Computed example of a mutant assay.
Amino acid sequence: MTTHSPWRGLGAVGLRLADVAARYVLAYLAAWLAVGLTTPRVTDSWQDPSEFPSRGALVLEHLGFALDMVWVIAVPSVLISWLCALFGERTGTAFRARLAGLLLLPLWFLLFASTAHMLLFLALGHLVFALVVMPVPLMPAHGSR
């Protein structure tokens, strides 16, 4: 293969898409960690205080829930990010704003649950990913070889 082979370009695209997915996974886990760390412990007046779940148990419970929600939230969000990065023509604030709005779509079902706290942190995680963490432009300009 030569240095200008189309397969070489395909490998570069694959590496950049993997980088986007890895960055999203870190943002997703950080958002769920924030949910777990800030969720108040449910306390009943009749319970013994030693029976309350520990903070570590709550964080692990929320991280387990995050794994359950991967197919509903994370996979569509990564696909949206990839599609915007591959087919979007703009790269500045317009791209980031459009991506931020589209990344809120997988969170729609949380509007109907009593999970405002969870929705807030997951929405903030998606916005931070779109506005700060997402590498833009995904592909370098054609003349920069």
Rank of each mutant, 00 (worst) to 15 (best):
Thr3Ala: 11
Gly11His: 07
Gly11Trp: 11
Ala12Thr: 08
Val13Glu: 09
Ala27Arg: 01
Thr38Ala: 05
Thr39Met: 12
Pro40Tyr: 03
Val42Cys: 09
Asp44His: 11
Asp48Met: 01
Pro49Gln: 04
Ser50Thr: 10
Pro53Asp: 08
Ser54Pro: 02
Gly56Ser: 14
Leu58Gln: 10
Val59Ser: 01
Glu61Leu: 13
His62Tyr: 12
Gly64Cys: 03
Gly64Gln: 08
Phe65Tyr: 10
Val70Met: 13
Val75Ile: 15
Pro76His: 09
Ser77Ile: 02
Ser77Val: 02
Val78Met: 13
Val78Cys: 06
Val78Tyr: 09
Ile80Ala: 09
Ile80Lys: 01
Ser81Asn: 06
Cys84Tyr: 12
Leu86Glu: 08
Thr91Asp: 15
Thr93Ile: 07
Thr93Gly: 06
Phe95Arg: 14
Arg96Ile: 03
Ala100Arg: 11
Leu102Arg: 09
Leu105Val: 15
Pro106Ala: 10
Trp108Tyr: 14
Phe109Asp: 04
Phe109Trp: 12
Phe109Tyr: 14
Leu110Glu: 05
Ala113Val: 07
Ser114Gly: 15
Ser114Pro: 15
Met118Gln: 14
Met118Thr: 15
Leu120Thr: 11
Leu120Gln: 03
Phe121Asp: 00
Leu122Glu: 14
Ala123Glu: 04
Ala123Val: 06
Ala123Lys: 05
Gly125Cys: 02
His126Met: 15
Leu127His: 03
Phe129Ala: 06
Val133Ala: 11
Pro137Ser: 14
Pro140Cys: 07
His142Met: 07
